[in-house]
Design a protein around this nucleic acid. Structure first.
Lengths: 347, 347
DNA sequence: GGACGTATTTGGATCGATCCAAAACGCTCA
DNA sequence: TGAGCGTTTTGGATCGATCCAAATACGTCC
């Protein structure tokens, strides 16, 4: 038994169990080659001596740490809480663990975090990239041989490697079709400035859906965060215009909930005087007053799919890039289920 | 230059820069002992060869990974987003990185995650413990020699080692004093079942504050999550009683926001018919309708203080346990700023 | 030029785990 | 009992970085 403060090693376990270091190593790897009685002796030594595996040492020889890095841009967005839960559930079944890091939408901070994860020898990376992420990041990851699955956002005009996302376009079509059916002709999209693929996907999907419906798209990009407060502030501005839109589709639920607050502040009836649709269908959407209609992106399923894809890449390296675009659905609630009063519609 | 797929090592850098492996190592450690021109040659080799440091190898000899584990019970709670931002800001200045893991309030999952972090040789742990965490966890951490700072919650009846938290008691006193000053006599606390120190602290603080005010405490514990939905559901139940409380203090802002929703659903005027006070003072508190009064716990400052304490422990090992209990403040908004109508008060 | 002191660099050992070919062991059959 | 075969265990080399005492280099002074 080494003195306090000195870590227990395989050598100590081997001495205690009366076997070689190699046998101990095989036991810890759950190798089927070891006899049951031997395995039991070693595991008893592990418990008795309080051994803690040294993954750093193991990385010098073995290929795997069984650790996945998860890098997202905003952990305060409930979408990521649900997505990470899906990731972790899937990884747990494979005896992998995820380490989460948050970039605050800064490409520099993102690079630093990814470097640090790589230094720890993560096996793969699940990345929801910061806005303005340069494509050189993907070159670097490729050079490293680090499998990367982009999730929900991708670097560049289209995903280059593995990607898991939601079918925003289909969601937009459903939302616009629904709003048009209710009489809305002036529908606005509130989104970011276009520095992320999430912005651009929403814009493209919205544009296509509006053109399909024979309507003129009104796309409201804006700088800054995609938060509740931003949704509120920007909606206050929009509604102060001479001919404001009669319906809003917001970048995410947080912004949509902010928009509902703004409408209420203006003495308008959210959902009646102006329809609001969010994206993500967070738990909160169902609870708000009025309940928020939202394009459901199923973050838990997104997380699970991304983790499955990572594990598959690790099992079968060198495969073709996989693009998984999961179905969305439109969850209609009070914020967008009233027919528009004709008197509110411009000629 | 080693072939693709084979990592660049110190040996490769040394050959490229025309120095020894030891010199390379000293340069990477930013040792002042190395000549400037030598350092430049080595750093040029690093860039040219695309070297990635191997922290696993380094952990075999050096004492530090410059990595802090952050283990929390619910990443979807905005409190933790803000706290982690505070942690990361402080750690970045010291060239440390945090890896975040979420336990879902499960002690078993928590143990598994902490084991995995330890295997990666994190330098210290910031822990907001899952409810029902056994004290044996602290024994284990001590045996490992892993510095641990409990944050906001602690294991056992009182913190045993380092702790950073908020002065909930002072916050409770302010909230109760304020409500009593407005005429409230029946004030209820909505909190968890008492399995976490956060629950118990709130109960004790509330009890003491109510006794100080000469009022009878009404403590509503409940099973399950401390979420918006839970706040809504439990408030609906409470308000269906014959003599419901005229004021609610909720475990956190999420629950308080749920309570506001419930009151509105019941046709009551939130803040007038029943006052509501949350805990945390999240961004959302200011935006809701009515704006939520909240005991501000300053999560960003909590995170910074915890990270500072961790760094101090690492710089000066063996010091006395530090207990930092940061001031709270009461942020009064519309949800609790009306004097109570006398007709609503029981005799 | 040699001695001395300081600055800089070096090289072999070490760290804890894995790898893999070889050794050891146990069982069965002739 | 010995040979053959399958099962189990072993031990030395290796991995990439750090450590630290020793070696080397450099500048200054006499």
């Amino acid at each position: 038994m080494p003195p306090s403060g000195k870590p227990v090693t395989l050598k100590d376990l081997a001495a205690h169990a009366g076997v070689s270091r190699s046998t101990v190593s095989l036991v810890l790897q759950e190798s089927p080659l070891v006899a049951k009685s031997t395995r039991e002796r070693v595991m008893a030594a592990v418990r008795t001596l309080g051994y803690v595996y040294n993954r750093g040492a193991a990385t010098l020889r073995s290929a795997r740490t069984h650790t996945i890095g998860v890098v997202v841009h905003d952990i305060a967005n409930p979408f990521f809480g649900a997505m990470v839960a899906g990731i972790d559930e899937t990884l747990q079944n494979a005896d992998y663990v995820s380490f989460l890091a948050s970039t605050g939408d800064s490409p520099e901070r993102q690079q630093r975090l990814i470097n640090r994860l790589r230094e720890q020898r993560i096996d793969a990376l699940l990345l929801c990239p910061a806005e303005n992420t340069p494509e050189t990041l993907l070159d670097t990851l490729e050079r490293w041989g680090l499998p990367c699955i982009e999730v929900m956002r991708h670097v560049g005009a289209s995903p280059r490697g593995h990607y898991v996302g939601a079918d925003i376009r289909a969601g937009m079509i459903r939302a616009v079709t629904h709003l048009a059916g209710q009489g809305h002709r002036h529908i606005a999209l509130l989104t970011g400035p276009g520095h992320s693929s999430a912005d651009r996907d929403r814009m493209a999907g919205f544009q296509a859906a509006m053109e399909d419906a024979g309507l003129v798209p009104d796309i409201r990009t804006g700088r800054g965060e995609l938060t509740r407060r931003a949704g509120l502030e920007r909606t206050l501005e929009i509604m102060s215009e001479a001919t404001p839109p009669t319906a809003l589709i917001c970048h995410n639920d947080l912004m949509a909930l902010g928009a509902l607050l703004a409408l209420a502040r203006l003495g308008l009836t959210p959902g009646v005087d102006c329809a609001v649709i969010g994206i993500d269908d967070s738990d909160e959407a169902a609870l708000s007053e009025p309940a928020l209609s939202s394009i459901a992106t199923h973050p838990h399923a997104i997380g699970s799919a991304a983790a499955e894809l990572a594990l598959a890449c690790l099992d079968h390296p060198g495969g073709e890039p996989q693009r998984l675009v999961l179905d969305t659905s439109l969850h209609l609630r009070a914020s967008a289920d009233h027919c528009l009063h004709r008197s509110r519609e411009p000629s």
